[in-house]
């Protein structure tokens, strides 16, 4: 059974990762962001505490990133928003991977008419303009953060279904599956024990990119009002709420936007590095 272990040996990828500057920057950024999310309640004040008299004040010792239109501390809101964006990003990708893997595995292993049907459904979702569809779903479900996650996940899964199906089809032909089949392994066992682990690499690489994409899409939804509810310090919603005051308080929309940028950047760098290391054939 040793033949079926993942293709890459563990020590070499790590060493290669450590030699990849982009990956290192991405990983350290992500560590900082996760720490920020965890420590926000300690290192930042209450994100919803208002003081109208201190409205739209520039950065100062008291408010290092200034205040917004309700006199709330922008730094506190940005810090608390970190966890929300990470939650949205991971939530979307986990959900999308679950749906995609399920569909892909079913299509790949069942084959025939089922394969056809499932892949055509996948194609339909692929053909949708993602933001427009997500907007329609979010509008119908009612705007809140969980529905945003569902809506974005519902437009993000097809890529995984395709990836998994392709891997399954490729692997099915491989010898060791034949061997396992000859040994009498059942169909579902075959799927879970043998096929899934071998499709993990491309999924993992794709997922690391998609976290960033999901954060961007979700922020866009919140920006147009189909996302987080006030006074939730969601970054997209923060840019949206403060954009009218850009002439007086440029810090208020800029700070959360930089938050989005850094988070997405972290995941994109990480995705690049992972692809280079784990999946050399899939490089750009």
């Amino acid at each position: 059974m040793a033949v079926l272990a993942p293709v890459n040996r563990p020590s070499r990828p790590l060493r290669r990762f450590l030699r990849n500057p982009g990956g290192l920057i991405g990983a350290s950024l992500l560590v900082v962001l996760i720490l920020l999310a965890l420590l926000a309640p300690i290192i930042a004040s209450d994100p919803i505490n208002q003081n109208i008299a201190e409205r739209l004040k520039p950065p100062s010792a008291q408010h290092i990133l200034g205040t917004d239109q309700l006199g709330r501390d922008v730094w506190a809101r940005v810090a608390h928003g970190t966890g929300i964006s990470l939650k949205v990003g991971f939530g979307v990708v986990v959900l999308a991977v679950l749906i995609g893997v399920l569909v892909g595995l079913l299509a790949g292993t069942l084959g025939g008419a089922w394969d056809n049907l499932l892949m055509r459904v996948t194609d339909i979702f692929f053909a949708f303009p993602s933001l427009i569809l997500a907007m329609a779903i979010a509008a119908a479900l009612g705007p809140n953060l969980n529905n945003t996650i569902i809506a974005v996940a519902l437009v993000s899964w097809p890529i995984y279904a395709r990836l998994v199906r392709a891997s399954v089809l490729a692997l099915r032909e491989r010898e060791f599956v034949e061997a396992a089949r000859a040994l009498g392994a059942g169909r579902s066992r075959l799927m879970l024990r043998h096929l899934l682990p071998n499709t993990l690499t491309p999924i993992f690489v794709q997922a690391s990119f998609d976290v960033g994409g999901a954060i961007l899409t979700a922020a866009g939804l919140s920006f147009i009002g189909f996302g987080a509810q006030p006074p939730t310090p969601e970054w997209g919603a923060m840019v949206s709420e403060t954009r009218s005051y850009i002439a007086e308080a440029i810090w208020a929309p800029t700070a959360p936007a930089i938050g989005i940028l850094l988070t997405v950047l972290a995941f994109n760098l990480l995705g690049d590095a992972l692809r280079d290391i784990l999946d050399p054939r899939g490089r750009d």
Partner: peptide, 22 residues
């Protein structure tokens, strides 16, 4: 390219309006 791929388009729009038009 990395920055461009990570910048939220809605903020870029608001910012460029502020800089180039205002």
């Amino acid at each position: 390219a990395l920055m461009g791929g990570a910048t939220p388009v809605f903020f870029l729009a608001v910012l460029l309006q502020y800089v180039f038009a205002r």
